[in-house]
Structures are given as structure tokens and as C-alpha cells.
Amino acid sequence: MGSPHPDGGSTLLVPETARPEVPGPTRRPTRAKERLADRLFRRLTAGSAAFILVILVAIAMFLLDRALPAIYQDSTSFFTTRTWLPDGTPPVFGIAALTYGTLVTSVLAVLMAVPVAVGVALSVTSYVPRRAAQVVGYLVDLLAAIPSVVYGLWGLIFLVPAIGPLSKWLADYFGWIPIFTSQGIFGKSIFTASVVLAIMILPIIAAISREVFTQAPQSQKEAAYALGATKWEMIRTAVLPYARSGLISATVLGFGRAMGETIAVALVLSANYEINIHVLAPGGNTIAANIANTYGDAGKVGQGALIASGLVLFVITLIVNFGARAIVARNKDFRVSAA
């Protein structure tokens, strides 16, 4: 078909050497100058990309510089300890519970947000009439405009009491699933934090999905309809495959955002340092929320310990991204062979 492969990106573009830039007769007199401009522009963009790397390396070095001394002073294993008393004598702290909480809240949030976000994006692009779709699109974007501190306050004052019945309902009917078992106190749980996070990342995922769906080639959509496809079949065959890489990167963006969210989680979580598989019970903590909670009153070792936990978050994000990239790459191979 020769249509663009979104997930192939750069590698699928016309290779530099094969670019139809050279044909003799159409060559213009200003070519040398344009060549120079071209090269300069290229350098400018490459320089910007390098600058991003420089910033990240600087941040990573800063994190290491602050984190390592604190980890050395830790009297227990940094990775398997749950306690967080870095300013005690001796300092005792570890990220086991924090990492667990970070992953669980973010995964739950993504599980809740992605289906809804994709549904929203689909209905906005394919189902709802165009005018209404724009309005709805703006409305969902508005969710992104609400500052995280407002989500936190809303979560604390409104959602925590309101989610009680829902949590109880889940515990009553699904209590046989271990994660939904509960002692009868509901409110500031991992589940609540996940709901807040899901609401917060929903607009990001929805907005990117929407843009990606909009860009699906009209020709393919029409081709699907011409073959007698229903709307859903059209979406499945002409829109979704085209959008897959965009959806994955939207999800990863949402996941990263969820893991890094600070204030909102700090406000709705009843932070403790336990590893608790019962997502409806009070408790749980995340790396970012723990930084927000304890940085203000942390001493020297405490600050270093918090930065060390930030470094861990950094590494987790790195792993998640490599994973996502591997999935995209595998998908691409599959699609290339199937096409």
C-alpha cells in the first residue's frame, strides 16, 4: 500500500540516499545555500535532542550523587526493606513497599483508564456527530486542566467518603478474590488512589488516542465500508491496527504520569509502609507520594534516601519503556509480514 507505518517511524521513511533531492534539470541555483540551511536545521534538531540527553544525564548524576551516600548509610537492604526511618539511628529504610505500591496503583489506574479512554476516543472520532464530538473532546481535555492538587483535595474530601459504598460492594461480591478481601474499613485505599490516578491520566490517553484515530487514512476507512463492513468492523480493520503504536505510547505516557504523580496520591493515600495485597484496605504508599509526604521534614540522610527512591522510580520507568518498545517492535514485525 505504501501507506505510512506509524510505528515504524524513522526506519520506514525514505532512506537519506534515495531521496529525490538531486534530479538535475529541476536543480535550482540556490541549491548550495539550501543545502547549508538544511544541514544547519538538521544540526539544530540533533543538538536539541542531544540537549535533552544532557539534561537527563545531569538529573541522573544528581540523583546518584545524592542517593549513594544515603544508601551506604542504610543499615539494612535498600531493596527488600519496607520500613522508612532514614533519620533514625541507625538509618533503616528500603523501597520494597513503596515500589510495590507505585506499581500496583499505576497498573490499576492504567487498567481502569485505558479502556475508558479508548472508548471515549472512539466514540468521539467515529460515533458521536462531529459538533457534539468537539464539545465532548473539549470536556474530556478539561480533565487534564484540573491541577493535581485539586484532584487531591477532591479525592480527600469527596471521593474518599463516596467510594466507601463502591468498595464495600466490591468486597461483598468479590471478596472471595483475595485482593478484594477487606476488614470493613474503606476509604483511603490503594483502590481509591488508583481511581484518582485513572481520572488524571484519562484525558492524556484519550487525547492522544483521539488524535491518532483521527489521522487514520480516510481511504482505508472507505475501503472497509465499501466492502460492506459495519462500523465496528471498519474500526477493527482500518483504524485500530493503524493506531496501535500510538495507543501503546499513550498508555506508557499515562503509566509514567501515574507513577510520577505526587500531591494527589499523597493526599488520598493513607500512607504506610506495608505490602498489602488487599487493595480496598487502608494503606499503601508510592515512591512519589512518599517524597511529597516526608521531604519537608526530612533530615540529611532522609533527603538522600528520598532521592534514592526517586532514582528507583527513574529506573522502573526506563524498564517499562523498554518493555513497551519491545511490544511495539514485535507488533511491527507481525504487521509487516501480514501486510
Binding site: T11, E16, I59, L313, L318
Partner: peptide, 26 residues
């Protein structure tokens, strides 16, 4: 999108994603 080829582009792209997960407080 327009220029990157090979490893450098992939590295930049990956690290941009990593940056999205940076806690704001960091």
C-alpha cells in the same frame, strides 16, 4: 521523526519517555 536513524534516535526517544515518569518533585 524526520532525521533520526539508528541508535541515537532510539536512545533519545526512550529517555524522553523516561522523563515523563520523572516525579515532579524530583
Amino acid at each position: 521523526v524526520e532525521y533520526a536513524r539508528g541508535r541515537f534516535g532510539r536512545v533519545v526517544s526512550t529517555f524522553v519517555d523516561v522523563m515523563t515518569g520523572l516525579p515532579s518533585i524530583v
